[in-house]
Design a protein around this nucleic acid. Structure first.
Lengths: 195, 195
DNA sequence: TCGCTAATGTTTACAGTGGTAACATGGCGC
DNA sequence: GCGCCATGTTACCACTGTAAACATTAGCGA
């Protein structure tokens, strides 16, 4: 028998059969792991092991690994949105808009794996016509855009403008994360790329 | 014993022990598989199986899975570059430049998995100062940029302009692939986003 | 033409992974 | 006080990447 099957090392501190709030613990541990290793090396078993629970216990809270990942993505997205909002609050008008973009990139650089996870596991958030639903970072952008382009602009023009803005910040984030562009240099240019 | 070990079904057509050009066959098969399934479901064993060779034979040509992936990425990058060049040849000046950007996005949409693979496995292609080495799509862009900004622009200005352009096309590609934005709608706007 | 060697494939084996099924525990409502 | 059922655990399974040992043969020098 392999040394490493489902009977992982249990926590010794508490011998309580039930955990208390395993779901939250799993998410929190997974987020912690994502700070140090990338998505493809994040295994359910490791998360369970670190939390001190058997590997299959996870399935009581998430039907499949992907559902855990979705939960992580939601968490990450909320963080991103919060940071954007916070950044926007420190300025006004166009500048405030630029700040949300910069915050977007900064978030990506600060949480590379989480950032990737967000976009790797959140398809179909958008319906035709609407850029994105309530609460999403893009929603924030869209509000600014409307302000920017003027209230009389056509829906398509708003969309176009938002798409352009989002593309820039997202593309810049990705290119830096994927090391397509020298990180140090690009980091220094963020504020000028996103004007 | 599992039904499925390394002794995969061999090809019956040829009973030659040696394959001939296994390396090329592996790459070609892997590329074919990438047209139908995404990167995380691409397994060495499946590639080997389809080529009609044992799983470990792969290791005679690639030290590890990642090296196969790198080879695929190179292949994909060459394709991308070729398509950009071709697109550029059909126009002149600014428009030609826009065409390379549009070709970039079109390539991403036409080869989603390969496109992702390219950027997931080609870090460290760039040195500080130089945007990218010879032959890369970005190199092509940089030439245009120089033309666009004027030959007297500072290195930093060229870099900035190139970074912005690349970010837009890359970001747009990613957002559409990751379904963050309605595909149909966004596709129709490509030419206007990249002006 | 023979035979040796290096290149190329194959077999076997192993640790790790996501996931299912059957069983164990114990907290909470009656 | 007791029983149910949500939550955990143990056994498995198929599959993956990869290492080690063995097999085959292409091709080169004698």
């Amino acid at each position: 028998m392999a040394r490493n099957d489902n009977s992982v090392n249990m926590k010794k501190t508490k011998d309580s059969y039930h955990h208390g709030d395993l779901r939250a613990a799993l998410i929190s541990e997974a987020l912690k792991l994502l700070e140090k290793q990338d998505l493809e090396h994040l295994s359910l078993r490791e998360v369970a092991r670190n939390v001190g629970v058997s590997a299959t216990a996870v399935y009581r809270h998430f039907p499949a690994k992907d559902d855990l990942l979705k939960a992580l993505a939601d968490h990450g997205l909320a963080m991103l949105g919060a940071q954007q909002k916070e950044a926007a609050a420190k300025a006004r008008g166009r500048l405030a808009f630029a700040q949300t973009g910069r915050a977007y990139v900064r978030f990506a650089l600060a949480n590379p794996n989480l950032f990737r996870l967000i976009f790797a596991h959140m398809p179909a958030r958008t319906k035709p016509g609407a850029m994105s639903p309530e609460g999403l970072p893009a929603r924030l952008m869209q509000d600014f855009i409307t302000m920017d382009v003027g209230p009389k602009a056509s829906t398509e023009q708003v969309f176009l403008s938002a798409l352009r803005a989002w593309s820039i910040v997202h593309g810049l984030s990705m290119l830096i994360l994927d090391e397509q562009v020298d990180r140090k240099v690009a980091e220094g240019l963020i504020d000028r790329v996103i004007a």
